[in-house]
Write a protein that binds this DNA or RNA. Structure first.
Length: 291
DNA sequence: AGCCAGGCCCAAC
DNA sequence: GTTGGGCATGGC
């Protein structure tokens, strides 16, 4: 099978990247590598001795897809330095998740995925999304021992009725998916979403645009901004972030407004990175607690 | 068994 | 503009 290897010196760890709750279609393998799907490509990624090897890919795809997806042209060392200069509490979190990168995911997939994520747990979110792909996504063939499916297109989900979505067990979110698909087809289509990634579209403008969709509130919108639209200043506050902000900064867990303002003041244009370090740290602490 | 999960909608203040 | 009940489903 085709493969491509590239050196990545630092600030890169597959567990941190794929297990920090930003994406739902990557599976850890026995050997510590990850197999997953993005942009209709099935690949396996292994990182060892500062070398990233992408299997079932090549240099051309690396340059056209994976370099941007993995955000390899961003200097995370510099970002962590800034965050630690602007805030003296976050250092443990930036050390704990030192290899995190914020994936540049496809806007449409992020929109639907994070609608599904609301009031849901990560294993089940993954199950729902996989079910959607199996039922409504294009078959990509068998890779790494499994049949693989693309994420469904807007057109495919637009055609699906709520009854069609029944077996996926999305619960009350099924209606959000159908209504959002209808609205997007009637409106700007996925191209309209893609345009929101442009630099001249502000985070506020993109936020206002996507909160028009049913099922997209403040938290879901901020996740879409951060993970799908490249608005890395956005700071999604879920129960984990609220919890860790309470623990580290002594905010009332319900006071989202105060936490957002703190993020604005201390994490500034890097709010999204700070949020991911905090989220991953919060879940890591919880994991330790359980032992 | 019962609480919880990457919350949102909508009605009632 | 804010607050709170209701909500589908299943992980743990």
């Amino acid at each position: 099978m085709d493969r491509y290897t590239v050196e990545i010196r630092k600030d890169f760890n597959l567990d941190h990247i794929f297990d920090c709750g930003q994406c739902f279609r990557w599976e850890r393998q026995e050997d510590g590598s990850y197999t997953g799907i993005a942009f209709n490509k099935v690949v396996n990624m292994q990182y060892k001795d500062h070398l990233l090897t992408i299997t079932n890919s090549n240099e051309e795809e690396f340059e056209s897809i994976w370099r941007q997806y993995l955000d390899l042209d961003t200097d995370y060392g510099q970002i962590k330095d800034c965050l630690n200069e602007w805030d003296h509490v976050i250092s443990d979190a930036t050390l704990y998740g030192h290899g995190i990168r914020i994936l540049k995911q496809e806007p449409w997939e992020a929109l639907i995925s994070f609608i599904i994520s609301q009031n849901n747990n990560i294993p089940r979110i993954k199950g729902c999304i996989e079910g959607l792909c199996r039922s409504f996504g294009k078959p990509l063939g068998s890779f790494f021992g499994k049949e693989r499916y693309a994420f469904p297109t807007l057109e495919a989900l637009d055609k699906a009725t709520e009854a069609d979505l029944g077996p996926i067990k999305l619960g009350y979110r099924a209606k959000y998916i159908t209504e959002t698909s209808r609205a997007l087809v009637a409106g700007t289509g996925t191209e309209g979403l893609n345009r929101l990634t442009q630099k001249n579209v502000t985070s506020q403008q993109a936020y206002d645009a996507i909160t028009q969709f049913k099922g997209v509130g403040p938290k879901v919108a901020n996740c879409i901004l951060l993970f799908g639209l490249g608005k890395v200043d956005s700071f999604p506050i879920d129960v984990w972030v609220a919890r860790i902000m309470n623990h580290l900064y002594h905010f009332d867990e319900r006071d989202k407004k105060a936490m957002s303002q703190y993020a604005l003041d201390h994490f500034r244009e890097y709010g999204g990175y700070a949020q991911q370090y905090l989220f991953y740290y919060a879940r890591g602490l919880e994991e330790l607690q359980k032992k």
